[in-house]
Amino acid sequence: MTNKIAPLIEARGIHFAYSANAPKVVVGASLAVPRGTLGALIGANGSGKSTLVRLLGGLLQPSRGEVLFDGAPLTSIEPRSRAKRIAYVPQTVSTVFPFTALEVVLTGRSPYVSRFQFENEHDRRIAEGALAAIDALHLAPRPVTELSGGERQMVALARALAQEPECLLLDEPASALDLKHRAALVRHLRRLRNERGITALIITHDLQLLDPVFDHVFAMRCGAIVAEGAPAEVLRDEVLAEVYGDAHIRARQAFGHTFVWSEV
């Protein structure tokens, strides 16, 4: 259904290995995320999800195949212009310096600020707005080194929003969040899509939060996309058994949601 909309970000048969003699992590992966939709990338640990998202964000270059953004090769977009359109949130943020959360969020404005300038009042308002949009404005003055893992993830997400991107690529943004904040994150993403038309692709293991909010689910196994479609189409016993290589995973629909669990 969503396929009629032109894809904003698209991978065409991309391959990638971290070094010449290392095994390929991404093997001929293809996917297209239509503009203004929420996509989820699922799959077992080590299936190549993070690498694929880095390739989509232009942080890594595929050895074969190509990544297209808004119809043009991603490599043709200059990195700082790219940063105004695509925001990437890594799994963890590694800083050891006690930057305040607001300082970290302000780094999201750097693509808009020239080399020898600092962010101005306008940038500051956008950064605070980004924190407020995910109910995290109270973190602004706190040193990030004193925040919990989940709070750091919120700060990283706010930084990405401060870039005012068309496309968000999030690598397990909810891995350190409690259930309440995970659900809140999904609500925020839905609102960003509905109100600002943001396109997002997120890596997640929270399969039960996908249906009905997400438009698309892409399932990855051994470096390739092996299943894709609406959440209800992908979240089925036989598909999940194939994706995770495990026959114990169950998916059932009830109350307009799809519930996923594993028999222990």
Binding site: A83, T95, F97, T107
Partner: peptide, 23 residues
């Protein structure tokens, strides 16, 4: 001095810096 901005972004996080356009 020329690199100070990139160093600021790198000090926060290397991957984030790369995604913000730092080579």
């Amino acid at each position: 001095l020329w690199m100070a901005r990139d160093l600021h972004l790198l000090a926060v996080d290397e991957e984030t810096a790369a995604s913000l356009g730092v080579n």
